[in-house]
């Protein structure tokens, strides 16, 4: 994962609430077994039907509860592959938010009035270290967990970080034997 510090540039606007992952990347594209190449299928039905137009700007602004529905990480891969580096919305589904952080896509939560302001301004600058979004007409602070921020800034791989705790995992397993049969023996 590449480190992320600042995302700056033009804003694409998707003025809808509850944008679900079935819309972001329809199921017919989930059959691919690679992580790449999903961008061209982003919002496939909506774009193909002429319902929305989207420029591959660095920033996407959307309505509340963005990324609801299925856990498919393909949604994040598609958004990133399309060219977005950050999504700004009043709220995100939990799984989409977590998936974003594993792929260096910034998911930034700011109140609806600022989302509207950013959409109107058409340009914004997100500073992860400062936790601020700057746009013509305002500046707003956003919250992000310290660990997650640190990992994004450093571009660190989460599995490597966890494996530094391998002894703790060994110790846990030794202290908690499993009841019931192993899945390999049923």
């Amino acid at each position: 994962m590449d480190p992320v510090e600042v995302v700056e540039g033009d804003v694409s606007v998707l003025d809808r609430a509850d944008v679900d992952t079935d819309q972001i990347i329809p199921k017919q594209f989930l059959k691919r077994i690679e992580r790449t190449g999903f961008g061209e299928f982003l919002f496939y039905d909506w774009i193909r039907d002429g319902e929305i137009e989207l420029e591959p700007n660095p920033i996407l602004v959307a309505g509340a509860n963005f990324g609801s529905g299925s856990s498919r990480e393909h949604a994040v891969w598609a958004i990133a592959d399309f060219g977005f580096k950050a999504v700004i919305a009043p709220s995100f589904s939990d799984i989409f938010y977590a998936n974003s952080t594993k792929n260096g896509l910034l998911a930034v939560i700011v109140p609806p009035e600022h989302c509207r302001g950013i959409a109107a301004a058409g340009r914004a600058r997100i500073d992860l270290d400062d936790q601020t979004v700057d746009y013509e007409g305002g500046v707003v602070r956003f919250e992000i967990e310290e660990d997650v921020k640190h990992r994004l800034l450093g571009g660190h791989d989460e599995i490597s970080i966890t494996l530094q705790d391998a002894e703790a995992i060994d110790a846990y397993e030794a202290a908690h034997p499993m009841l019931g049969r192993p899945t390999t023996a049923i």
Partner: peptide, 22 residues
Amino acid sequence: FGIGTSEVEHVLATQTLVQKRP
């Protein structure tokens, strides 16, 4: 609970998951 593919990889490799308390 459901997890994304990066987390699937994390669990396969470590049998643990990084989670903040909900």
